[in-house]
Design a protein around this nucleic acid. Structure first.
Lengths: 342, 342
DNA sequence: TGTTGGCACTCGGCGGCCGGGACTGCTAAG
DNA sequence: CTTAGCAGTCCCGGCCGCCGAGTGCCAACA
């Protein structure tokens, strides 16, 4: 059914189409890839491949282009792993050599290098704070009627916020409030700090009034779903160089989609338990605006802490092997970089 | 030279062109705006206006379109102030009603509402930390071999970073290091903390070695010019709805430009001492890719602290009056919002 | 002198037409 | 099963001519 020669032909078609973006005909295959058979034979094979659903014709008397299924077969069975070129690898390594201490900048940089090396649009979902556990919080008086609330998770994230102090609060009381909070909350998943729990705390401690309220408000904000995945985009302009987006309307629908963080985050989230790189092709992505696109995504980690997802979005006609290689290289470098710096 | 009727004609042409994006002819003016004269008269006036440099012709036997100079005259002399519609005002007020404590989110939200109400691309340069003065820094031990460095400016920004502690450091020493730093640095402009000064401090205090080094590295990062203006973009897709960007090449050059933060920041930075809203038209912006665009920008403040710039980028053919109105409304709301919440 | 109607002219855009080129599918022969 | 040949299909790009919008100019008029 899918003999060796058919595979070869399919592979040839996909690789040529990826390179040229033009429907590919039997003659082209026979010329560029010497399979030792004539165009006529290729034609027969192509006809079979179309019947099997691996190829489709934009219109009669044009060449064939791969279908979603064709691409799927290619990435699953035909594609051979390909390491990143040494230049690219150098480029990537260099990016992560600089000590970057702020997560925010690190993610931004990663988005940039990912889109630059793949020439596609990169999407990265930032640190998923709710996956971390609460470790400790501190209240540090600043002088005047201010204090800063420092919030620490066991993965080493630190956030802060300035609070207004009610006049009468003493250092000791400040200490007490943070002690209570710490005892109650230590070790809990941030996402599991339910509003109910917080409210009961609030009742218990309401003698500290406004101060506590602010601290709790801050905590609540940590759990806001809206805050859950902050997305970083890079290289949206690369889309403009792809011939499939020469049409302004397609472009618009795609770019508009990219502004909807929630949808993009969902797309990135699929196969979240799979190890390594995962690939979604065309209609496999359950988003209408992305039917002409593929998404290659991977989970990245810092240390052994799950952090987030990164991915690229591009036309189905992308160099899957290279993209996967780049992605592996980047996740690897990311881990090493954070091991050095934390 | 520029009599009353010429002004009226120019105004009519600009307003029609803004609405339709089509070159406008004498007949149209005579029909839509009843100036009480015949098309022939208008033709003469238009011919004069062209000679004076306020109009230009895309080609013979097409209508006229305003030149940069024409727009300039319009915004300087003809345009009448226009308040935002009450719906829009409500929308804006609602956006800023929510308590937003993180500057980052506040700026993001502002970019969103600005682009949504103007239907143009919004650019905001974030808090200019270097304009703030150093107030205080704290070193708070976290247990284990970590401490968190808290850095406070007199405008109330707080940043933090986790530092690795050399083993032998005691609480007392920690206190000493921060005391020294505080005494040396208090009240100085962040930007004026020169590398030389930092290095001399470093020599003086090198017995604290690695700890101090990290603290100083953090400080140096604060002054990095690259960090100077973090830019927030909103609504880039609105460009796609403008007929002047139906051409993919124009679009590409524009969107590519928008990825260069430094250039965009420079554009935003002009007229930085002017109060209120400033308008740049076409070639007045010294950027080739923006010759078909106009930029409307304003300084926004939190309290009486200068914070940054915001602006919109759109085709020269934009509704200047409305955009200016929206911008005023947003800056006003921004101030009020921060007065409530800080 | 300023305004107006009339008229010839210009030019871009659009639709229709045509020919070339690149395919395919079929058939018949090797 | 493979291959050459051939007829048929369809897209695409170039060409042409028409249409309409708009101008510029001129002559007439207040």
């Amino acid at each position: 059914m899918m003999d060796d020669r058919k595979s070869k032909v399919l592979q040839a078609i996909i690789e040529d189409y990826v390179a040229t973006a033009e429907p590919v005909g039997s003659r082209t295959i026979a010329r560029k890839f010497n399979l030792g058979v004539s165009p006529a034979t290729i034609r027969n094979e192509m006809s079979d491949l179309e019947e099997l659903g691996y190829l489709e014709q934009p219109h009669t008397s044009a060449g064939r282009i791969p279908s979603d299924r064709g691409y799927r077969y290619y990435v699953d069975c035909l594609m051979q792993q390909r390491d990143v070129s040494s230049q690219e690898n150098d480029l990537i390594r260099k990016t992560f050599e600089r000590k970057v201490r702020e997560i925010d900048t690190l993610v931004r940089e990663t988005a940039r290098i990912l889109s630059d090396t793949t020439h596609l649009t990169a999407v990265i979902s930032g640190p998923q704070k709710e996956k971390a556990s609460f470790k400790e919080m501190r209240l540090v008086p600043l002088g005047g009627d201010k204090a800063v609330l420092i919030y620490i998770t066991d993965s080493g994230f630190v956030e802060n916020q300035v609070l207004d102090l009610p006049m009468e609060v003493t250092m000791l009381e400040l200490q007490q409030v943070s002690d209570v909070l710490n005892n109650q909350l230590r070790g809990q998943r941030v996402e599991s700090l339910s509003r109910a729990a917080i409210q009961s705390l609030q009742r218990e401690l309401n003698k500290y009034g406004a101060l506590l309220e602010q601290a709790l408000e801050f905590l609540e904000n940590r759990m806001e779903p809206g805050e859950r995945h902050r997305l970083y985009l890079g290289g949206t302009t690369h889309m403009l160089n792809q011939p499939e987006f020469r049409d302004v309307d397609k472009l618009r629908s795609l770019l508009t989609l990219l502004e909807h963080d929630d949808i993009v985050a969902d797309v990135l989230e699929v196969g979240q338990d799979t190890e390594g790189v995962s690939i979604q092709i065309g209609e496999e992505i359950r988003v209408r605006e992305l039917t002409d696109c593929s998404v290659v995504s991977a989970t990245y980690r810092l240390g052994d802490q799950v952090i987030g997802k990164m991915g690229v979005i591009g036309p189905k006609r992308m160099e899957y092997a290279r993209v996967v290689g780049v992605m592996n290289s980047i996740t690897r470098n990311l881990i090493e970089s954070t091991q050095r710096n934390r």
